[in-house]
C-alpha cells in the first residue's frame, strides 16, 4: 500500500527578470510516495532547488498545482510538515549545538522536558552525542551539517527536504554522511527529497531518481531504483549500480545537460 505525500501537476514557475522571463519550472508532474527517498539531479539552472523550495512554500508556483500531505505547501509549512536542510549548515554561532537543535523546538513551543529528550535523541541519531555543549566553530564542516540534519529531525515532520546538504563537503566526509543518512532514513522511515548534482550520490541514496534539465526546467526521466534497501558503500561497484548511473547520464544527455 502506498500513500502519495507530494503530488505536483503541470507545475510551472516563471521568474520575471530584467532579461525577460526565466522558466525555472515548466509543466512538472511528479508523485512522491510515503517513505520514498527521491533525488533531484540535473545541471545548474534545471530548477531542482526551485522545485524543492516550492514544496517548502519558499517559492510560489505561477501555474499548476502541488499538494504536500494532501494540502497546499503553505498549510503544510504552517503545520510544520517538513524539515528543511540547506546547503550550508547555518547554525547560529551564539548557540551551542544543543541550543541550535533546540531552536525549532523553542519556536514550536515544545515544553522544556520534551525539548531535552528530543535534542538528546536526534543528536544520538546523527552520532553527535557528547557535542551538545560545543559551539559550532568547534566542529568540522561535516559535523556541523550533521547537526543541521539533527535540527531538521528534532520535530515530528514526516518529510525531510534537503538542498545539496553535502555539496560543500569533501568526498570522504560525503561518503560517510551518505551512509549515515541511509541508516537514518531506514530507522526513521521519513520521506526524503534530496537535491544533488552528483550522479553516484543520487544513485547510491535514492529509491527514485528524478533527472531534470534546464531552460526551461523540466523532468526528463524518473528512474525507480532496483537496488536493495540495504546498501553498503561498495554497492557502487556492482553492475546494477553502474547500470542505473548510466541511465541517469543518458537522461542528462537527453536533456542537453552536456551541451555547450
Amino acid at each position: 500500500m502506498t500513500e502519495t505525500v507530494i503530488s505536483a501537476k503541470d507545475l510551472s514557475l516563471t521568474f520575471q527578470t530584467n532579461d525577460g522571463p526565466v522558466h525555472a519550472l515548466k509543466d512538472v508532474n511528479l508523485d512522491i510516495q510515503k517513505g520514498d527517498f527521491v533525488s533531484f539531479i540535473g545541471p545548474s539552472g534545471c530548477g531542482k532547488t526551485t522545485f524543492l523550495r516550492v514544496m517548502a512554500d519558499l517559492e510560489q508556483p505561477t501555474a499548476g498545482t502541488i499538494t504536500v500531505n494532501g494540502v497546499s505547501p503553505e498549510q503544510a509549512r504552517k503545520s510544520r510538515a517538513y524539515g528543511y536542510v540547506f546547503q550550508h549548515a547555518g547554525l547560529y554561532p551564539w548557540r551551542t549545538i544543543g541550543g541550535n537543535v533546540r531552536l525549532p523546538l523553542e519556536i514550536m513551543g515544545y515544553d522544556k522536558a520534551d525539548q531535552d529528550t528530543r535534542v538528546k535523541r536526534v543528536l544520538d541519531l546523527v552520532e553527535l552525542s557528547g557535542f551538545e555543549k560545543k559551539f559550532p566553530w568547534q566542529l568540522s564542516g561535516g559535523m556541523q551539517q550533521r547537526a543541521s540534519i539533527a535540527r531538521a529531525l528534532a520535530f515530528d515532520a514526516d518529510i525531510l527536504l534537503m538542498d545539496e546538504p553535502f555539496g560543500a563537503l569533501d568526498e570522504i566526509v560525503r561518503d560517510h554522511l551518505n551512509e549515515q543518512l541511509l541508516k537514518l532514513w531506514d530507522r526513521t522511515n521519513k520521506t526524503i527529497g534530496f537535491v544533488t548534482h552528483s550522479i553516484p550520490e543520487a544513485v547510491y541514496l535514492s529509491t527514485k531518481i528524478v533527472v531534470m534539465s534546464p531552460r526551461p526546467g523540466r523532468i526528463t526521466d524518473v528512474i525507480e531504483s532496483t537496488l536493495p534497501k540495504e546498501r553498503p558503500l561498495d554497492i557502487r561497484d556492482t553492475p546494477e549500480f553502474l547500470e542505473i548511473a548510466h541511465r541517469v547520464r543518458e537522461g542528462l544527455r537527453a536533456g542537453h545537460a552536456y551541451d555547450d
Binding site: 519558499l58 546547503q87 519556536i107
Partner: peptide, 27 residues
C-alpha cells in the same frame, strides 16, 4: 536569506524571528 528562509520553514512568528535571530545577530 537562508537563515530567514529557515525561520520561515519553522513557521516562526515575527517576534521569534526578531528575538532569536535578528537581535543576537546584531550584537
Amino acid at each position: 536569506m537562508m537563515q530567514l528562509d529557515q525561520m520561515r520553514t519553522w513557521n516562526a512568528t515575527g517576534g521569534q524571528q526578531f528575538w532569536k535571530l535578528r537581535l543576537p545577530s546584531s550584537m
